[in-house]
């Protein structure tokens, strides 16, 4: 392993000592979606790619590598040379949760964060015919009948799981509820509609897929579309569990030369702010949240630390 790393480092030194780096990019750039073609991440990346291509001035293509909740793509990318020609769009779970609960070959130091693209706050919601109007109702009901109520998730360690854990752990009633994981959000939403589970947590776009009622939002302020729904902090959940965003951005393997990072980050900023992508974001319900390389790195590292509390609470 060390021989391979040093060999890679040597190869790198040879590659980038030459002025060739100044001509970046000289070949197509690959953006990896760590999930299936046609999923939310994939479509976001496909909407982003044309604008990024225009800004960077070299062909950009999206490829998919799915499996293991995104860890397969991230593991594979972390072993690649940091040329800047390969980047993955990684979300909060792939980059900060999975490496802390699974034995994957990457961690917080494996990446060169390039830029963040989106961040949507999550909400805790119930079916519209549910008797619960507020979190107070929920706490009272759960305290009265421990073990009766069930919350769902799209899988252990997924964003949906973390949202519900943040909510119930923050209110101190997590062990009085049952957790029922599903394979993906679709079946879970079906069971929420059918009444087999009572609570679910996801982003605003996903919540709108059904006839659901939000009870609180994990944001620093109330949402424009739901001015009556309290934030988690207002409900009484303390930091760091009170804010939870499904964020994502572009990551390259650690050690990308600075001038390449600068070029990529500049192109990313141009693409995110382009009219076309803004339009795309509006129609697809994406909440844009751009951060440059330094900001994004600081944010990523603090999230990595903060989310440890969530992981512990979830018992992962």
């Amino acid at each position: 392993m060390t021989i391979r790393t040093s060999a890679a480092a040597l190869a790198l030194a040879v590659c980038f000592a030459a002025p060739a780096a100044a001509e970046f990019p000289e070949r197509p750039i690959n953006l990896i979606a760590p999930f299936n073609a046609g999923g939310g991440t994939d479509l976001l990346l496909r909407g982003f790619a044309p604008h990024f291509e225009e800004a960077i001035g070299s062909p950009v293509f999206v490829s998919n590598m799915s499996g293991g909740s995104g860890t397969v793509a991230a593991s594979a990318l972390s072993g690649q040379r940091p040329t800047g020609y390969q980047m993955a769009y990684m979300s909060i779970t792939v980059s900060t949760i999975q490496p802390q609960i699974k034995n994957v070959p990457y961690d917080v130091d494996s990446w060169t964060p390039i830029c963040s693209v989106a961040a949507s706050p999550t909400l805790l919601f119930v079916n519209n015919d549910s008797p619960f109007q507020s979190m107070d109702d929920v706490v009272a009901a759960v305290e009265a009948e421990p073990g009766k109520y069930v919350f769902g998730s799209s899988g252990p360690g997924a964003m949906t799981h973390l949202t519900t854990v943040a909510a119930f752990s923050g209110l101190g009633i997590l062990d009085k509820l049952k957790h029922l994981p599903f394979r993906g959000s679709g079946p879970a939403i079906k069971e929420l509609t059918a009444g087999n589970i009572q609570f679910f947590g996801d982003t605003e776009v996903l919540m709108q897929r059904g006839d659901f009622r939000p009870l609180m939002v994990f944001n620093d302020e109330r949402l424009e579309n739901y001015p009556d729904v309290p934030t988690a902090a207002e409900v009484g959940i303390e930091a760091p569990l009170n804010e939870l965003y499904l964020w994502g951005g572009l990551f390259a393997p650690a050690g990308v030369p600075e001038d390449v990072v600068a070029k990529l980050a500049e192109a990313c900023e141009t693409a995110v702010n382009s009219e076309g992508f803004q339009e795309f974001a509006t129609s697809s319900g994406t909440v844009i949240n751009h951060r440059g390389p330094e900001d994004f790195e600081a944010f990523f590292r603090s999230q990595y630390e903060d989310n440890r509390a969530l992981i512990e609470a979830a018992g992962l």
């Binding site: 046609g38 999923g39 479509l43 939403i189 079906k190 709108q208 897929r209 795309f280 697809s284 319900g285």
Partner: peptide, 24 residues
């Protein structure tokens, strides 16, 4: 219901969302 029946219909739903239609 806006609930995908299989992997392919899930792609269709995602495509609808992109075109500004909320499945549900």
């Amino acid at each position: 219901l806006g609930i995908p029946g299989d992997a392919i219909t899930a792609v269709m739903l995602a495509t609808l969302t992109l075109h500004g239609i909320t499945p549900g």
